[in-house]
Simulated assay, not measured.
Amino acid sequence: MSIQQNVIGPVSAHSISTSYGALKNFEVIKYLGKGHFSTVFSARNRFTNSYVALKKVELSQMADAKAIEDCKREISLLQQLNHPNVIKYISHFVEDNDLYIVLELASAGDLAQMIKHFVKTNKRMTEKTIWKFFRQICSGLEHMHSKRIMHRDIKPANIFISAEGAVRLGDLGLGRFFGSKTTSVYSMVGTPYYMSPERIQEHIIGYDFRSDIWSLGCILYEMAALRSPFFGENLNLVSLRAKILVLDYAPLPASIFSHELRHLVARCLVLDPEQRPDITEVNHIAQMMYARFVEQANMANNTPTPTPSSRDDSACGSVTPVNNR
């Protein structure tokens, strides 16, 4: 069996004739980013005139079966998800031994780019904006967990933002489906700064959905502090692991951020995964806190409550650096 057939199987004449089934049907517009075997572009479909993200995966560079299985798994997971806060799968096809995955386009970039902008301009996100984004991240992840799908690589670069300001969880290349008999997994995969202690330890122990909760805690902290809680100059994996295992991170200033935000970070960044809240509880807190800040803003401005899609709130405030230990 060829690499192409192993990934996608025989391509039917019907799928080739669809508007999303061939590269010639797209006008590639802009380079967006690059992964280990993949490159992502924005593109316009010539038939529907819709704008999409086109992820090109170089199958010929994949010498081992695991990389090919990762491709198949990503497509399978994407096909199971349908939520406004998860990047939508549209189609996929193979051409000239390259796999193309057609995805919803989040044209405003990602959370990593946004955080860099705040750092560069010496501003910070208001807490209202933090909750506005975080509640959408949690809502998308709750949908994934309800489908028994673990993300395993939640980080700012995988949290995308649409032109309308909506947040989308994406890049499920490391995602994992938990079957009815699966209780934990063991692969040490992910991005180290956002990996839970049970995943980053030298002697691999099992982990489950609560590992994603740790990553959420890192994201919530980073939106407030504008850096990862365990960031350090010239850290190698050994020293990073040591920081994580003793929870060596600077507390967020109580003079700026609410008790609820700081307490939720602390509850997510707990060494024992059994002591972390599940995604339903985290999402409930995020929704409640955003609603509280919206209500406070409305009372201050004496204006009607906006719809959840409203973008009238300012995202900026002056930066107060987090004190280093």
Results as ranks from 00 to 15, higher is better:
M1T: 03
M1E: 01
Q5W: 06
I8C: 07
G9R: 04
S12Y: 09
H14M: 13
I16F: 14
T18L: 13
S19P: 10
A22Q: 14
L23C: 01
L23W: 00
F26K: 12
E27Q: 14
K30Y: 04
G33V: 04
T39W: 02
N45Q: 11
N45C: 12
R46I: 14
R46H: 06
S50C: 08
A53Y: 05
L54R: 04
L54A: 01
V57T: 08
D64S: 00
A65S: 08
I68D: 00
C71F: 01
K72L: 03
R73I: 00
L77Y: 00
L77T: 03
Q79P: 08
L81T: 05
I87M: 03
I87C: 03
K88L: 06
Y89H: 09
H92M: 01
N97L: 11
N97A: 14
D98V: 09
I101V: 14
L103M: 15
L103R: 01
A106C: 15
G109E: 04
D110F: 06
A112D: 12
Q113F: 05
M114W: 09
K116E: 10
F118D: 10
F118T: 05
K120C: 11
T121V: 12
T121Y: 13
N122P: 01
R124A: 15
T126R: 07
T126S: 14
T126K: 07
K128M: 15
W131I: 08
K132N: 13
F134L: 09
Q136G: 12
S139E: 08
S139N: 15
G140E: 07
H143G: 05
M144R: 01
H145T: 04
R152C: 15
D153H: 13
D153S: 02
I154E: 04
N158V: 13
I159L: 12
I159M: 04
I159S: 04
F160H: 03
F160E: 08
I161P: 04
A163F: 06
A166K: 11
L169Q: 01
L172D: 06
R176C: 14
R176L: 14
R176Y: 14
F177M: 10
S180P: 05
T183K: 14
S184V: 05
G190C: 06
T191V: 07
T191F: 02
M195V: 02
S196A: 15
E202I: 07
E202F: 05
F209A: 15
S211F: 03
D212V: 02
L216H: 08
G217C: 10
G217M: 00
I219P: 02
A225K: 07
L226F: 01
P229Y: 02
N234Q: 10
L235S: 07
L237S: 10
V238S: 03
S239V: 04
L240Q: 02
V246G: 03
V246S: 13
V246D: 08
A250N: 14
P251L: 02
P251M: 05
P253L: 00
S255N: 15
I256F: 05
S258E: 03
S258W: 01
E260Q: 10
L261K: 09
V265I: 01
R267P: 10
P273S: 11
Q275I: 02
P277A: 13
T280N: 05
N283V: 06
I285H: 04
M288L: 12
A291T: 12
A291H: 11
Q296K: 10
A297F: 14
N298A: 08
P308C: 12
S310I: 11
R311M: 15
R311T: 13
S314V: 11
V319E: 09
N323S: 11
N323G: 04
